[in-house]
């Protein structure tokens, strides 16, 4: 939602505040996916103008976290789930871009699975965050969510004419460096994309940003450039990440990059403070700093003023 809407009534503003902590919807506009704040999409009046909800991105649920930044991450996740379930036309699939749990503990995964099972959508797709692979055996995530990728962590699927690629970039960190995709996965990407037409919309999702946002905090993927080169020939590419618990967007040619908010707790802006830890904000401010992202297939073209970036700045400004 944009902050520059002069006609917004106080009632709507309050409603938006209440719906903060929800997320963002993506709309498919002439083959280009556009993220829309979920609170807007869930609004019966305004949401109906945005076309058919396509999918929802949820990220960084951090089940198991219980520090002052958010003592009840289960409740804020439940709130987001309720919002998805309340949409008049529900999206068919949900993408979780990782950090499902905080400490990779079995009981955290159990709770997360239980909560996510309340989503009234037919498909849940996940990629792990580094918090999900922090157990000594790196097995808890794969025991539960490994089947889709044959325990590799990366796989692809097609939905409504859009080609989705789930990638893993949280294993094999280069010490002192960034996330990594690795040569084997990049070869698989090459094989997977070979048969795709350039007109097929592509959605790529992975936990850590696939572009460098702030390298001193590891907010990037060292070999992402080798992935991006393979995506350039496509007319519509949307890259979705989590990890940094805030919305940052960039458009590079036909490629739109988007990082999602967390449903658990905010993190500082790049380089502010000693490191990327939980950011404690006043409890009445917390909902506006959380969120998920929804994508819908839109029936009309947005005006330039409602472009992806304008929309993002509105969302980032606080719903």
């Amino acid at each position: 939602m944009s902050n520059d809407q002069p006609s917004r009534s106080r009632r709507n503003a309050l409603k938006c505040l209440a719906y903060g902590g929800a997320g963002t919807v993506f709309a498919l506009t002439g083959g280009v996916l556009t993220p829309i704040d979920l609170a807007v999409a869930a609004d019966k009046t305004r949401g109906s103008k945005m076309g058919r909800p396509f999918f929802v991105q949820i990220s960084d649920t951090h089940i198991g976290f219980n520090k002052p930044a958010n003592p009840d991450v289960g409740a804020t996740l439940t709130r987001s789930i309720e919002l998805v379930n309340s949409m008049s036309i529900r999206p068919q699939l949900i993408i979780h871009t990782g950090d499902i749990t905080h400490l990779s503990r079995p009981e955290e995964f159990d709770t997360a699975e239980q909560l996510l099972s309340q989503l009234a959508v037919s498909e849940l797709h996940t990629v792990p965050g580094e918090h999900d692979v922090a157990d000594t055996t790196v097995s808890e995530y794969f025991n539960r969510f490994g089947k889709a990728s044959n325990n590799k962590g990366y796989y692809s699927f097609d939905h409504a004419g859009v080609h989705f690629m789930a990638l893993i970039n949280v294993l094999h960190f280069k010490p002192g460096g960034l996330g990594a995709l690795g040569a084997e996965q990049l070869r698989w990407v090459n094989d997977d994309l070979r048969g795709q037409s350039a007109s097929t919309p592509i959605v790529v999702f992975a936990h850590m940003p696939l572009w460098s946002i702030y390298e001193p905090w590891g907010w990037g993927t060292g070999d992402a450039r080798l992935l991006i080169e393979q995506l350039r020939r496509f007319g519509s590419v949307t890259i979705l990440n989590g990890h940094i618990h805030q919305i940052v967007q960039k458009v590079e040619g036909n490629i739109t990059f988007h990082t999602a908010r967390s449903t658990a707790y905010p993190q500082p802006e790049p380089g502010v403070g000693p490191g990327p830890g939980p950011l404690v904000v006043a409890s009445d401010q917390l909902p506006a700093r959380l969120g998920i992202t929804t994508v819908s297939s839109i029936k009309h073209h947005l005006s330039p003023g409602d472009s992806t970036l304008a929309d993002a700045s509105g969302v980032a400004g606080g719903v």
Binding site: K67, L103, S104, H131, A134, D135, T136, P175, G277
Partner: peptide
């Protein structure tokens, strides 16, 4: 001593702590 979990992971694979909470 951080509010964020950390791990101690050996580059050679000799030791791997798993997540260490606050």
């Amino acid at each position: 001593k951080d509010d964020e979990p950390h791990t101690v992971t050996s580059d050679s694979g000799l030791f791997r702590s798993g997540a260490i909470d606050t």
